[in-house]
Design a protein around this nucleic acid. Structure first.
Lengths: 206, 206
DNA sequence: TAGATTGTTAATCGATTAACAATC
DNA sequence: TAGATTGTTAATCGATTAACAATC
């Protein structure tokens, strides 16, 4: 398969959400340059990305909204449900749990973990919260392949180690530190602090 | 001034946090290749970035931790306090407020806004929460230059419009939609949903 | 058809990396 | 000095964009 860049995947994710919005307005078709405006990109880029998912438009009517969404889904989504575990049920952890609760996606959070006895063995945003020591058992039993790290910076590495040993194939790290993992584990950093510093820097330059 | 890419700013932000950790361990100096390992990058990249902030290391001892941190700070941080406003005091909004509360950074959240009467006129994580209708007045009175959007997707555009009209020069958008703003306003999207889809996609490919 | 779009290639652009003289 | 590092240039790499023949 052709090598796909993280940026391409990110854009496809955005396209899909924009298309979803269009579909709910009963929009049937869209041209590459129209979609480009909605995502603040270029038409040629949109066409390349659409090509990458293997969908073909019509030279007269452009892209069919519903079919393009479906093609992006085929490309991005796992063939079956992909289960995730979230470690750290603070405000950010609960915000993420809230987003995934009830949504019918191929991506779902199967278990939450925390060390706080007040949170353990309760249901938070529709998800059962386990003590951290049960992590390995629950991850393996529920076939969890993706770990979400929402603990404070000083605990992130220990949690990452635990998740890797339990056998996840990817990590989504929200803690503001760089974690070290075995090379076969994919890490995606969501560095909110960097985002603030970038926004502040470029807003200043105008 | 030489054009600086968003990526460079992001890396500098990461370097600074890594250096902070080293300093708290009383580490005095570090070589480019050592720093590269800690941020999962390349030594040449580190050297280029360090050059960009105008700091010079020693060919025998590498970089001085404290001085490099200071140089990055000079480069990244605003000369005086930069005030931000956050709109949307849900779980994510509170997580962000919590992070900034009490921290002594040049970046601070001066005001929060929500439409929920239960939240308005209270202090959340040390920050006063105002009704949305006061936004313009508060933003101008407190010289707020950066807006943080943590409302649901369907309200993000309206909030962005309100913030732009109030005169902010940058937006940090956490809502999972693309917002349209005047060209003089800088938008930084933190697309958490895209991050999940990217992580899931690449974890699968291993 | 005439006109506008598509898929796709070629050209451009920018960022990353390798290499090396200068330095201590 | 000998050796390892730095700043910095040159080479490489990859991603974006422009351009255009093919299509309806």
């Amino acid at each position: 398969m052709k090598r796909i860049s993280p940026k391409t995947v990110g854009r496809l994710s955005v396209y899909r959400r924009v298309l979803q919005g269009l579909q709910s307005e009963n929009r049937q078709t869209i041209y590459s340059h129209e979609l480009a405006v909605l995502v603040a990109g270029k038409a040629a880029q949109v066409r390349r990305d659409v090509m990458a998912v293997g969908y073909m438009g019509s030279t007269t009517r452009g892209y069919n909204v519903r079919e393009l969404m479906r093609s992006i889904g085929h490309f991005l989504d796992a063939p079956e449900q992909q289960a995730m575990a979230i470690v750290g049920v603070g405000l950010l952890g609960r915000a993420i749990l809230q987003y995934f609760s009830g949504s019918r996606l191929t991506l779902s959070i199967a278990a939450a973990f925390d060390i706080d006895p007040a949170k353990v063995n309760r249901v938070v945003q529709g998800c059962r919260c386990y003590p951290l020591k049960d992590l390995r058992r629950v991850v393996q039993r529920s076939k969890i392949s993706l770990g979400i790290i929402t603990v404070p910076a000083d605990q992130a590495q220990a949690v990452a180690d635990k998740l890797c040993r339990a056998g996840v194939s990817g990590l989504l790290n929200f803690a503001p530190v760089r974690i070290q993992v075995p090379s076969e584990v994919h890490v995606e950093n969501v560095d909110i602090i960097s985002a603030f510093e970038q926004a502040a820097f470029f807003a200043r330059e105008e």
